[in-house]
């Protein structure tokens, strides 16, 4: 057996596979299909201070080798998460990451304060959310805006702080460095790419919000490039994601510099993908004579 253990910010993951936010709920549904204890970690559905209903109309849509989504952060709110879902997720021996979004600086700070006091292992800050103050442009586009959020959250956050970068950032490397300087303990990337689909018969966009987020295998090569350039440019650990569908992809992201990875859309293609990828990673490491998976991190 290869040693798949990996460490990010002093937190030990039994293997580098983390279920990505928004694709795995709070783990309950998938735990009915396979034992989620086999995962290195689970990142919760994106949480906001207040419960959110999310968007109307079509929310998911198949695209070549991928999908688009416009769920709109439907979630029960941080209070309900702490009360109902942390106890559920704590039954499992897997790293518990709370993923949090916001629409104003106050949302982020208050939310981070609450989650920081709760029984979670790490906080993942989703900065891809639209900023109400700047006409809906996401916090994660301009490095100075993102740095402001990270600085404010850092002040109140007593858990390891992962900042999840948007690939729509003006310059992903500058964004990463700005978040590092503002106090991020680690970075995860990428979130979804802003994309569009049109129903030509109705002459209307597929999504009510016109644009939606692209994920899945289609984005993998770009995500890999971004993980590589960011990992080269920062000192803090990087968690890689974007279109991972196999153990081979996991190794590629780790060789590009990721200390751990997340799997999102593949959970829909293959409902027990988490379990399968962990098993295959074990076998693959043996075939490749990798004794400690951490040894391959950043070899390229």
């Amino acid at each position: 057996m290869a040693n798949l253990q990996t460490t990010v910010n002093g937190i030990t993951f039994k293997n580098p596979i983390i279920a990505a936010s928004g694709t795995f709920g709070f783990g309950e549904e998938y735990n009915q299909l396979f034992d989620v204890n086999c995962l290195g970690g689970i990142s919760s559905k994106g949480l906001t201070l207040k419960p959110k209903d999310g968007n109307l109309g079509i929310r998911v849509y198949e695209t070549p080798s991928g999908m688009m989504n416009s769920v709109g952060l439907q979630n029960p709110g941080i209070e309900a998460f702490i009360e109902h879902y942390i106890p559920v997720m704590r039954q499992w021996d897997t790293v518990l990451i709370a993923n949090m979004g916001g629409h104003s600086m106050d949302d982020y700070v208050t939310g981070a304060e609450m989650l920081s006091r709760a029984d979670i292992d790490m906080l993942e800050l989703n900065i891809s959310c639209p900023n109400v103050k700047s006409g809906g442009m996401a916090f994660g586009i301009k490095a100075d805006v993102a740095a402001e959020v990270v600085t404010a959250v850092r002040k109140v956050c007593r858990k390891p702080l992962i900042v999840k970068l948007s690939p729509n950032a003006e310059n992903i490397v500058e964004m990463a460095q700005a978040c590092e300087a503002a106090g991020a303990d680690s970075l995860s990337l990428v979130n979804t790419f802003q994309a569009m689909a049109i129903d030509i018969h109705r002459r209307k966009p597929i999504f009510n919000n016109v644009y939606a987020g692209l994920s899945g295998a289609a984005i993998r090569p770009i995500a890999l490039r971004m993980v590589h350039s960011v990992a080269k440019a920062v000192q803090i650990p990087v968690i890689g994601l974007g279109g991972i569908t196999s153990a081979e992809d996991v190794l590629a992201f780790m060789m590009a510099g990721a200390s751990a990875v997340q799997i999102g859309t593949v959970n829909f293609t293959t409902p027990d993908a988490g379990k399968i990828i962990v098993e295959e990673l074990n076998a693959l490491c043996e075939r490749e004579h990798i004794e400690n998976i951490q040894d391959v991190v950043g070899v390229i």
């Binding site: 928004g22 709920g25 549904e29 998938y30 769920v71 439907q74 959970n267």
Partner: peptide, 19 residues
């Protein structure tokens, strides 16, 4: 339209009088 089919992704949520 559905993605996960099991209640995890919220890709199929619709408004009802019960939320």
């Amino acid at each position: 339209r559905m993605a996960c089919g099991i209640g995890a992704c919220l890709g199929c949520s619709i408004p009802t009088s019960e939320g």
